[in-house]
Amino acid sequence: MIDWLLLLSNAAQEIISPTTAAYALAALGLAIHFGFTGLLNFGQAGFMALGAYGFAIATLTFGLPVWGAILFGIAASIVFALILGVPTLRLRADYLAIVTIAAAEILRLLLTTNQFEPVTGSANGLQGYKGGFAALNPIPDGQYGFGPWVYNAYDWWVRLFGWTLVVLAALITWRLMKSPWGRVIKGIREDEDAVRALGKNVYFYKMQSLVIGGVFGSLAGMIFILPRAVVPSNYQTSLTFFIYAILLLGGAATVLGPIVGSVIFWVLLSFFSGFVARAVEAGWLPFMSSVQAGQLRFILVGAAIMLIVIYRPQGIFGNKKELAFVK
């Protein structure tokens, strides 16, 4: 029999899980790139990898303290954004897509190769970088919480840290997009030549946007590795596609959309995967193995991306009025 309570409680845990926070923050960065500026960044996984590896390597190899490691990860993503942006931001939008996706893959291959094993841990990745972060935990040891949300002090600390970052990033994004700066950014999304003709340095604005969204991605990468290890295979192109799914679900040109999109995405995915896995165990789906059940989620995400783009391009939170003009 299926334990519905367990399924629901597992799904409910996703609401505040650090993974949800990490995806929300990465999607927010992508919202700045794609939703507001119109930059087709398909390398968000690369920015996340830089945050994750930047933090871990700075801690393990250079022995930096937590704040230094965070700054190191941010700096790495800024450099990456500049390397991507300088050659491509003058070119047509689809070139950026190809270059970012390629650059993120290059990064992943470099992190996976055996050549840099002592620093990157190659395919096995890195662990043992959490000590400094755990030491900063202000919450006394013990179990806290109620209902499905009962965690130890470290787990709460990770959640607190992650969601604080998300809220701060959302506030900054919201302020930015309400400002004249945001107006230029949105103008560039609509037609960059028109904005150029009005005397704005389009290239410079795009670069700023790429850097800000990239820094959000790198912070997301740091949140992502606090509850787990750093493993290079987590940073494949499909990670970027999942973040796109979240962004499109919530609404690409909104501030709340990516966050709520991430919550909905993870709750539904957890519930769905849990349900199918249990249903297979219970013999309800005789034609399916448990391995196949695991693949269903990817099929579902792919189909969801298609359906949202076709039938609700403005997302859940997007402006209804926009719908008529979204092309």
């Binding site: 400002s179 004249p180 700066w181 107006r183 230029v184 949105k186 609509e190 028109a194 003009f325």
Partner: peptide, 27 residues
Amino acid sequence: KALGLLTVLDNMKLGAKGQSGESLSRA
């Protein structure tokens, strides 16, 4: 080249030169 998903007023405001709010640090 009208900027379709900006309001007419935002289109106009975008035209003004030398706005200090267009710099990231002040925005």
